[in-house]
C-alpha cells in the first residue's frame, strides 16, 4: 500500500531510468524508515516471545564462549588472559554482527514475498529491516564488551569514538553484502547454503580466536581478508591500539565498490525480484 498520493509505474525505459527508479526506492525507504524499524523490532520481539531472557540468551551463550575460549586458548597460546580474553570477546561479538547480517540477508526478500507481491513498499525497507534487527541484537551483546573492558581496565585506554567509526565501517560494508546475497538468494536457492559455508570458513580464517601477531610478517590471510579489516577497525581502538591506516583505506574502497556493484545489480533486477520469489 502506498501512502503517497501519486504512483507512476512505467515499462522499461533504459538503464539510466532503472537507476533512477532504484534511487527512488532508496529514498522511499528512508521516508518510511519507521516501518523498517517497526518490522525489525517486531522480528526480535516475536523471535524471543515467551522466553525470559530474550536476546540475552544469545548474549549468555556468547559470553560463555568468550570465557571458555578466552581462558583456554590463552593457556594454549601462552598469552596472558587479560590480553587474550578481551580480544576474543570483541572478535566474537562483532563477527557475530557481520555474519548475522550476511546470513540473514539471504532471507531478506524471500521472507518478504507476501508483502512484496501485493504492496508497493520499497525493497530497501526489507534490507534495513535485516540490518536493524542485527543492530538490535548487537545492542544486547555489547554487555559482554562493556564488562570485559571494565574488568580488564581497558576503559582507560579505549578510544570509543574511533571504535564507533569502525562500527560504522562495519555496518556500511555488511549492509551491501547483506543486500547482494539477498538478491542472489531470491534468484538462486543454493546461495544461502553457500553463504553459510563461507561464513563458517571465514570465522576460522579470520583472527577471531587467534591473534594476528602470530604471523611475524603481514600475511595474505590478514591483508586479503576483508573480515580481518572489519574486525580490526572496531577491535584495535577498543583495545587502545591503532587499527592501521590501510584497513580504513581498504574498507573505504570496499564500501564504495561494493555499494556500486550492489546498487547496479539492484537497479537491473529490481522489477524482477518480486517474480523470483
Amino acid at each position: 500500500m502506498e501512502t503517497a498520493t501519486h504512483m507512476l509505474r512505467t515499462g522499461r525505459r533504459g538503464t539510466l531510468f532503472e537507476f533512477h527508479m532504484a534511487l527512488r526506492d532508496l529514498r522511499a525507504s528512508y521516508d518510511r524508515r519507521g516501518l523498517a524499524w517497526s518490522l525489525a523490532w517486531h522480528d526480535v520481539v516475536s523471535r524471543y516471545r515467551g522466553s525470559i531472557l530474550g536476546p540475552f540468551w544469545i548474549t549468555l551463550s556468547m559470553g560463555l564462549m568468550v570465557l571458555g575460549i578466552g581462558v583456554l586458548y590463552a593457556k594454549l597460546f601462552s598469552i596472558p588472559v587479560q590480553d587474550f580474553l578481551p580480544f576474543v570477546a570483541i572478535g566474537i561479538v562483532f563477527f557475530g554482527l557481520i555474519s548475522g547480517m550476511i546470513n540473514e540477508g539471504c532471507e531478506t526478500f524471500v521472507n518478504a514475498s507476501g508483502m512484496l507481491s501485493q504492496t508497493s513498499l520499497p525493497m530497501f525497507t526489507f534490507v534495513w529491516r535485516t540490518v536493524l534487527r542485527n543492530l538490535i541484537n548487537l545492542a544486547h551483546h555489547l554487555v559482554i564488551i562493556v564488562v570485559v573492558l571494565l574488568v580488564y581496565g581497558y576503559w582507560r585506554t579505549a578510544n570509543v569514538p574511533l571504535a564507533l567509526l569502525g562500527v560504522l565501517f562495519v555496518i556500511v560494508n555488511a549492509s551491501w553484502l547483506s543486500m547482494l546475497v539477498g538478491i542472489a538468494s531470491a534468484r538462486f536457492r543454493d546461495i544461502p547454503q553457500i553463504v553459510v559455508s563461507i561464513m563458517q570458513f571465514a570465522i576460522f580464517m579470520t583472527p577471531v580466536f587467534w591473534k594476528p601477531d602470530r604471523f611475524p610478517d603481514r600475511h595474505a590471510v590478514l591483508d586479503l581478508n576483508p573480515f580481518y579489516h572489519l574486525l580490526q577497525v572496531v577491535r584495535a581502538p577498543l583495545l587502545g591500539e591503532a587499527a592501521g591506516g590501510h584497513s580504513y583505506l581498504i574498507l573505504s574502497i570496499m564500501a564504495l565498490a561494493g555499494w556500486a556493484v550492489t546498487f547496479t545489480v539492484f537497479a537491473l533486477t529490481r522489477r524482477r525480484i518480486v517474480h523470483y520469489l
Binding site: 498520493t5 504512483m7 512505467t10 515499462g11 507481491s117 504492496t119 518480486v274
Partner: peptide, 20 residues
Amino acid sequence: LSGAYEPDEGQIEIQGRIAA
C-alpha cells in the same frame, strides 16, 4: 495496480492513496 508488479511496457498512473 497495487504497485507490486511493474509493467514491462506501457504505464500505470494512479492519483490517490491505494489500499490493496
